[in-house]
């Protein structure tokens, strides 16, 4: 009998590129971060893949934010912070002596929990980074492109000269994403980008992330497990480890495809956390 033709590929499991087809953008090997003598995260080994959304989940104090900040050298801004181990970005040692932290942050943008637009016009917020970096050619076009990519253009196109502070929280957050996108980064780091937003604005940000992954690699720290389950391709679970000397440090417990983490995690600690039994 002739097989029934189907538009859906029945041989494919999940929606992700197969393991061998994933391209690692970040490669962390034995990465530990210290604040003074305190170890905040210990011995993290992880590959973060290009044009996928990777979620970092875990209980408070497990080093999620510390870890994401190491990815664009934001930890440099904390005087007592120190990193050991190796963190490569597209094969280059991110903490190598000749790497310019400002250039790193242009290529690897960041969006924070609380929308933090500058007290300037909507237009100037997006143009700000471009001007600083001397990307002044076709400025108006670049601003429009970034606002379109952040799904904000239609809402603000008639009031670009208005203050950004007059936008709603959700719009402000999308403006911050537009600002991050404007300088044409390769990676966007998002630290709890929707935790201060209502469900509709949250949904808009999640849809936007899904759109953005066509062109960017996204890493998101989130406390909202359902958000991780909804948006992320890969999920990393960080847990808290108490060493014999009483130091509490974050460790990477499990890292796998999101579907696996939420249907059949390998580690009991992950299962406990995602089901809410503890953590």
């Amino acid at each position: 009998m002739e097989a029934i033709k189907t538009k859906i590929d029945l041989t494919r499991q999940g929606r992700l590129p197969a393991e061998g087809d994933r391209e690692a953008v970040f490669e962390a090997r034995g990465v530990s971060v210290f604040y003074g003598d305190q170890r905040a995260i210990d011995n993290v080994n992880i590959d973060i893949y290009r044009r996928l959304i990777t979620a970092i989940i875990g209980p408070s104090g497990c080093g999620k934010s510390t870890f994401i900040r190491t990815l664009n050298r934001m930890t440099d801004l904390v005087p007592s912070a120190r990193l050991t181990g190796e963190l490569r970005y597209r094969g280059i040692d991110l903490y190598g002596p000749r790497v310019d932290a400002v250039e790193v942050r242009r290529r690897i943008g960041m969006v924070f929990q609380k929308p933090n637009p500058f007290p300037k016009s909507i237009y100037d917020n997006v143009a700000y980074g471009l001007r600083i970096l001397g990307m002044k050619k076709d400025l108006g076009e670049r601003v429009e492109k970034a606002l379109r990519a952040a799904a904000l253009w239609d809402e603000v196109k008639d009031r670009l000269k208005d203050s950004a502070l007059g936008l709603s929280g959700g719009q402000q957050q999308r403006l911050c994403i537009a600002r991050a996108i404007a300088v044409e980064p390769e990676v966007i780091l998002l630290d709890e980008p929707a935790s201060a937003l209502d469900p509709i604005a949250t949904s808009a940000i999640e849809d936007l992330m899904h759109e953005l992954k066509r062109d960017y690699t996204l890493v998101i720290v989130t406390h909202n497990m359902q958000q991780a389950a909804r948006v992320a391709d890969m999920t990393a679970f960080f847990g808290l480890d108490v060493s014999p000397d009483g130091n509490r440090q974050g460790v990477l417990v499990e890292y796998d495809e999101t579907e696996k983490i939420f249907t059949n995690p390998s580690d009991k600690r992950t299962e406990g956390y995602v089901t809410g039994r503890f953590g």
């Binding site: 249907t263 059949n264 995690p265 299962e271 089901t275």
Partner: peptide, 9 residues
């Protein structure tokens, strides 16, 4: 309750 992991199964 949106069960996940072992509870979802």
């Amino acid at each position: 309750q949106t069960p996940v992991a072992g509870e979802l199964r």
